[in-house]
Nucleic acid binder design. Structure first.
Lengths: 249, 249
DNA sequence: GTATATTTGTCCGTATGTATA
DNA sequence: ATATACATACGGACAAATATA
């Protein structure tokens, strides 16, 4: 026999593009365990030879699977099979970062990335019941669990009522604890709007994602039990690592 | 002057790849209105000449923007700028398709695509409080608004309690009306788990999407007011057309 | 620490296929 | 039918990041 022929070989002019056939073969290999989770795929040139195509054709297949969140390619290192387990992040009347992930991770915390004072944009002003342009404090945070980023959030607060919350946040590492310093013992989620999109450049950097990754985006308003809006927020979650579990609001 | 030089020309060996620079230029052109919504972009060869690169480099840029949900390429026709308005689909204690979209669309309805009887899988059985393998009726539906698909759902019901719900659904075009025939006047959303992923081949066909599109996925259980589970469902929403608005559960 | 090899990323050019106008 | 425009595939060259000797 001259030349190894695989049982389920790729076919030219079959109506299905070569790169798609190769991508499906790789998916199959992952499903059957031929390529284990977190394991490195053979180099592109090796795959090209195995499937009898040009390296660029293999690259198209890999590129598609990177987009689909199955693989991760790292220049100079290799291409790896991603793991598929997700954290379940609860969203409900009392959405809190740390307590929500309890039991799912051995460690979790919030890092304050930056804070600033700025005039309220239209949507922030609406959410907080302020006039547009009123001063608000903006806190940029990242949530991490077991060393991996699981959320990236911007929170806005009325600068007059919550002057110094940036300092409180830096010291406590907790929104809940920071609000407590201002006499807020309890707060509720008033509204949440949820969407999904591809990660932009900032998301990629903040959440350590690969181009093509998906982020879940929540835009929310928190209020006191008696109905005063206290926080407007936009959060982004890497869809490959997090799912959102809606509980009673 | 030999050769037109644009003010903000693309730069080689600037650290940013040519295709990314071109993608950003296209984004900018859309933002400034140079390329209007739903308008066709110039052909690839024209863009290649405009930016002084090979056609493949333009293709890389376009490909990235298609992935990002900004453009839509149609073989033989052209490449088009997508519109960015989204429907806001409410999810809450009483999530209903038709009433939820009222006011946002002039027309909306549910199409029953298929129905079948099958043994309950593990997760369906758990959701409905049945034993695994118990007979369940599965309804496949698509929600459409103003002629465009906005959701694709599979719903499972206990086959003994809801025998004939497939027929009811075909006649009424409404889950709520169908359940009413079985004496269910009201039902509540017990749980919802939300995730996002790239559309697979079935999603692309069902929802009329382009490869690389994102779908929001909800897995939910509906119960009667006294707590009996009646429906397990998995719904997929095209993220480019729908956002989810969480209301009180 | 440095050179070398490995591996993925970018860009070009060419040819051909396929869908649409 | 013909032309247009996007899609696929190949081949080559070099750059950039990483791993290894």
């Amino acid at each position: 026999m001259i030349g190894q022929q695989e049982a389920d070989s790729i076919e030219r002019r079959s109506g299905v593009s070569l790169w798609r056939q190769i991508a499906d073969r790789i998916l199959q290999a992952i499903a059957t365990g031929d390529f284990a989770e977190n394991a490195a795929l053979p180099p592109e040139v090796a795959l090209a030879e195995r499937y009898g195509v040009n390296r660029h054709t293999v690259r198209s297949a890999i590129s598609a699977l990177v987009q689909e969140g199955v693989l991760r390619a790292e220049q100079g290192r290799g291409t790896f099979v991603l793991s598929r387990k997700r954290l379940s992040y609860p969203i409900g009347a009392r959405t809190r970062f740390s307590t929500g992930l309890q039991g799912q991770t051995s460690e979790r915390h919030i890092v304050l990335l930056s804070s600033s004072v700025e005039p309220a944009s239209q949507r922030v002003a609406e959410g907080l019941g302020l006039t547009r342009g009123a001063e608000v404090i903006r806190l940029e945070t990242r949530g991490e669990a077991d060393g991996r980023p699981v959320s990236r959030a911007a929170g806005w607060f009325d600068a007059r009522r919550f002057a110094g919350i940036d300092k409180a946040m830096a010291e406590t590492g907790s929104i809940t604890a920071s609000l407590a310093r201002f006499g807020i013992d309890d707060y509720l989620r008033q509204s949440t709007v949820l969407s999904a999109r591809h990660a932009d450049a900032a998301d990629l950097a903040d959440l350590d994602l690969q181009p093509g990754a998906i982020v879940l985006v929540t835009v929310a308003v928190n209020i006191t039990p008696d109905g005063q809006p206290i926080q407007f927020s936009e959060s982004r979650f890497p869809a490959e690592r997090v799912e959102l579990k809606l509980s009673a609001l």
